[in-house]
Design a protein around this nucleic acid. Structure first.
Lengths: 194, 194
DNA sequence: GCGTAAGACTGCGTGCCGCGCAACTTTGTC
DNA sequence: GACAAAGTTGCGCGGCACGCAGTCTTACGC
């Protein structure tokens, strides 16, 4: 059974844990949050925390992965006759740029704050790469391309979003959606030197 | 003084530490290596280890960063009249593909083995991104392009190498140099769907 | 329904890690 | 040669990740 009570409870706990981890870290700073605090905030024992995440940093970074996987879902829902990169550009700019679609509005800012800690930053990158698997899969469905292309294209998408977020936090006055769009545009143009 | 005894000693210690970390981890597996072991192997006190690296995983992944920064140096040495992406493709394929240029020949295999551990993998990605700063700088010198382009192009190079390494380890029978070349070629062509 | 097996949560205990602190030693400068 | 600056080291501590075993909850066949 893919959707029993068990599964939903687990998903809810994981959700509660990573939300609490991100929120508390934004509020107090990474060093001032104990895993006990996160566990308590999620209504679960400290020991259970490590049944879901292998490190505190991983929990904090997990929401980023979640959102990238949402992106893969949205991409999957795009009509099949839309060219791949048009679909990607559309989804990425609206999901991350269109402020109303995002479940948590301050997310982009939050991860920027949180990723200031080296350990969290590393996990943020890992989360991004893990989510690329989902994106690669969708690209495979759409194009039927070889696995190498799937992974490379998915990685390019992840990279575009990452660089755009970093540029946005620099800060670049342009809105995030526009920066992501610009990054994807330059990539699909073959990165010609301007 | 940029090159006193002090500086050289520090560099030597850092080198010894991350070499030992990588070697021991390849030999015994990440879990079976203590920081004490690494410190001892490098001829330094355990406490000193954390004066150079903030975590064991960081030390293990550091050689990857080192090699990417060597790549940036090689790129810098390329004649200025060579087009950017030709220079990048040349340097990347010869440095990582041409087996004789690499200081440690088994490096590509080693990082593959070592990155099996999630914590190390995260640090491996972080190392890659940190090295991108050096690459971005060189790209800036060569092209005079805006910072956004610099970072995006550098990130694309890092991504191409990462995906090629993962593909190579899958394993794809093609040699690593050729995979990197293919990745860069597809990127500079704008990732057309095959 | 009901019993049983599988799975999840929890408390406890342990070993390792990262780092602050305060000596001590080495390197660089005048 | 003396003084300042920087690096190394031993000590100690708080926290983290996880193995283990017991308890409670969910799933499923009858």
């Amino acid at each position: 059974m893919a959707d029993g009570l068990r599964e939903r409870k687990k998903a809810a706990t994981r959700e509660a844990l990573c939300r609490a981890a991100l929120r508390l870290t934004v509020e107090r700073g990474y060093e001032n949050v104990l895993v006990d605090d996160i566990a308590t905030a999620a209504g679960v024992s400290p020991r259970t925390f490590n049944n879901y995440f292998t490190s505190k940093a991983e929990a904090v970074a997990h929401r980023h992965r979640h959102h990238l996987e949402q992106l893969a879902r949205k991409l999957h829902e795009q009509p099949a006759d839309v060219p791949l990169w048009v679909a990607i550009a559309t989804v990425a700019t609206t999901y991350f740029g269109g402020d109303e679609h995002l479940p948590d509005p301050s997310w982009a800012e939050d991860i920027g704050v949180v990723a200031a800690h080296p350990a969290v930053y590393a996990e943020f990158l890992k989360a991004s790469v893990l989510a690329e698997e989902s994106i690669a899969e969708v690209i495979g469905e759409r194009t039927g391309a070889d696995p190498f292309y799937q992974r490379l294209a998915a990685a390019a998408v992840g990279t575009a979003i990452r660089v755009a977020i970093e540029e946005w936090r620099h800060p670049d006055p342009r809105p995030l959606g526009r920066l992501i769009g610009s990054a994807i545009e330059q990539l699909t143009a073959g990165l010609p030197t301007p």
